[in-house]
């Protein structure tokens, strides 16, 4: 017999091995958690007043839109795609919604319209990618251009939002006491989106098909999975998330500005990657992306505590992104050798 010898499985040596064989793909998420803890610990040791309920509550409040975007982006990246349009779509839906409300439309009607607009952008990207073989990068780029242009078309200046319901999302603070933990409805929305995203990915066929496509689109197709529908839907999810982020961001700033969210797509991608999602697709978790956003937000907070220039945020995030990308590359190279 002349076949190439294969390494025979070693007998399981206990809990660790079993854990690793089941949860290997969670390791990057743990790495992100460790990173977050280290940043917190270092900041706490340096400033002494970072780990306060106020600061941590503010993290969720300030980055609510980013959590929502990161969930949508996770869906797309898991399929092996990318969505560069999220920042611009967020800005456009925000502008459009604000202008409708300025014209007196009730927010109950405006919010669904904003979500539908986001979905339309996602669908357009998905159709270009799926039916016209356009690279996701280029298709979402076109959507980004279009959304940004449309945002300016609505108005060149910011539009103030006076709708009570929208402002309520931001101004209401469910507080445990003065100077203590609090959460705003926008924060609750963000956490709900994370929860729903995590459940959908873990417990529905749609979610599992997303992982399958990211693992190997060819295999997924051979297994008879609905590849086309699932990929389209992943971009739609990202689009809806961008629309929802538009609502939340509008509430956060109390106004819409067409320049909102420039570069946000990069922040989102960075957060998702730092949270342990492989850019080649197939591995990653919404919960990881949430951690990634926390890392991003904490770095931002730390830098403002330091009184340093905010440009350090981007530099630090870029450096972290680099670190994670290179580590991912090493992991992928190693698993290819198997």
């Amino acid at each position: 017999m002349t076949s190439v010898p294969v390494t025979t499985e070693k007998a399981p040596t206990g809990v660790v091995r079993r854990f690793l064989s089941r949860r290997a793909s969670w390791v990057p998420v743990f790495a992100a958690v460790v990173l977050l803890v280290v940043i917190f610990a270092a900041a706490q040791a340096y400033f002494g007043n970072i780990l306060t309920p106020r600061v941590i509550s503010a993290l969720l409040l300030d980055n609510a839109y980013l959590f929502i975007l990161a969930v949508g982006m996770t869906f797309v990246i898991l399929t092996g795609g990318i969505d560069l349009s999220v920042g611009a779509v967020m800005a456009f839906t925000g502008m459009f919604g604000a202008s409708l409300m300025r014209d007196g439309m009730p927010s109950a009607a405006v919010v669904p319209i904003m979500l539908l607009l986001g979905a339309a952008f996602g669908l357009a990207i998905g159709v270009l990618v799926q039916y016209f073989d356009v690279q996701p990068f280029i298709a979402s780029l076109a959507a980004m251009f279009a959304a940004r242009g449309l945002a300016f078309m609505v108005s060149l200046d910011s539009i103030k939002v006076e709708d009570g319901a929208i402002l309520w999302l931001q101004s209401t603070r469910l507080q445990a006491g003065v100077g203590s933990w609090y959460i705003t409805p926008t924060g609750i929305i963000a956490l709900l989106v994370v929860l729903v995203g995590a459940l959908v990915l873990a417990f529905t066929r749609f979610g599992r098909t997303i992982y399958a496509i990211g693992g190997s689109e060819q295999s997924a197709r051979l297994m008879g999975l609905p590849v086309v529908r699932t990929k389209l839907l992943a971009y739609v999810v990202s689009g809806v998330c961008a629309g929802l982020a538009g609502v939340v961001f509008t509430a956060y700033t109390g106004a819409s500005y067409p320049l909102n969210g420039i570069g946000t797509e990069l922040d989102t991608i960075a957060a998702v990657v730092i949270g342990g999602t492989l850019l080649t697709g197939g591995s990653g978790y919404v919960v990881g992306s949430m951690i990634g956003v926390f890392v991003y937000g904490t770095i931002k907070t730390v830098i403002s505590f330091l009184g340093a220039d905010q440009s350090w945020t981007r530099i630090s995030i870029g450096a972290l992104l680099l670190m994670f990308v290179v580590v991912q590359r090493v992991i992928v190279a190693r698993s290819n050798r198997r």
């Binding site: 793909s25 417990f203 066929r205 992982y211 693992g215 295999s219 197939g282 591995s283």
Partner: peptide, 22 residues
């Protein structure tokens, strides 16, 4: 799909579900 579990690789697309939940 090496990125999924053994069980999923066997049942993917035909997963046993309860009320749409795997």
């Amino acid at each position: 799909l090496p990125n999924l579990t053994v069980a999923e690789n066997i049942w993917l697309g035909r997963e046993p579900r309860h009320l749409g939940v795997i």
